[in-house]
């Protein structure tokens, strides 16, 4: 564990907490994409299949449980909690899951390190996580109405990805045999998807104005 990895995990945790705070206390999920949240459930469910069979540390297992539990509860809130569900931008959040999942399934079947069930599912989760934010970014672009919490949620998620890249660079130079092309390339793609959002986020922050995306 290095400082970049820890910072990445903590920003990831913070992003989930910000989203839960918005949904649980304000009872609103306006501007939040249910499609993206459902994709995250699939990402965590397929990545942490080994949660009971391979033990790394208490920290790892605990974080896995937190990410699984929080993503499930966010989806539950958005689908079944009456007050929260009313605030969901259903008409705008039209991205098709299969449009993202199918290419990721095919890619995981073609490009992986080992052709075993667990390994292909794990690789699929990496590919899917890289693009899971797309419905959320499309929703933002469409509604263009971004409250502070939604903006902070996406900013923290992007920050988590940025820290993970620093973590990989650090590990590459400090640990022998630490080469993971699949993880790195999908992680890099994922981080690049945030670039546009980050640009406007910093612009609004610099000018001390409310975040607004161009049409």
């Amino acid at each position: 564990m290095n400082i970049f990895r820890l910072a990445g995990d903590m920003t990831h945790l913070a992003s989930v907490l910000v989203l839960l705070l918005k949904i649980h206390t304000i009872k609103s999920c306006a501007g939040v994409s249910l499609k993206t949240q459902e994709l995250y459930v699939i990402v965590f469910a397929t990545r942490y299949l080994d949660i009971f069979t391979s033990f790394v540390s208490i920290y790892n297992s605990l974080m896995k449980l937190i990410f699984l539990g929080s993503s499930f509860s966010i989806v539950w809130y958005m689908r079944y909690h009456k007050a929260v569900h009313r605030t969901y931008d259903r008409e705008q959040d039209t991205f098709r899951h299969w449009f993202l999942m199918l290419p990721c399934i095919l890619l995981a079947l073609l490009i992986h390190e080992k052709f075993t069930f667990f390994e292909v599912m794990w690789t699929f989760s990496l590919y899917l996580e890289a693009v899971a934010i797309l419905p959320q970014l499309v929703l933002l672009q469409r509604t263009r109405n971004i409250d502070n919490l939604t903006g902070q949620y996406i900013f923290l998620l992007g920050g988590y990805r940025g820290f993970y890249i620093l973590n990989w660079i650090y590990r590459y130079f400090t640990e022998p045999h630490y080469v993971h092309w699949i993880t790195w390339i999908s992680g890099l793609v994922q981080t690049l998807l945030y670039a546009d959002f980050f640009y406007y986020y910093f612009l609004s922050w610099k000018n001390n104005k409310k975040l607004q995306l161009p049409a």
């Binding site: 990895r5 790394v56 790892n60 974080m63 993970y164 973590n167 630490y178 080469v179 993880t183």
Partner: peptide, 10 residues
């Protein structure tokens, strides 16, 4: 054995 250390990340 092959290094599987990417698996210790989240």
């Amino acid at each position: 054995p092959k290094d599987r250390s990417a698996k210790d990340e989240l």
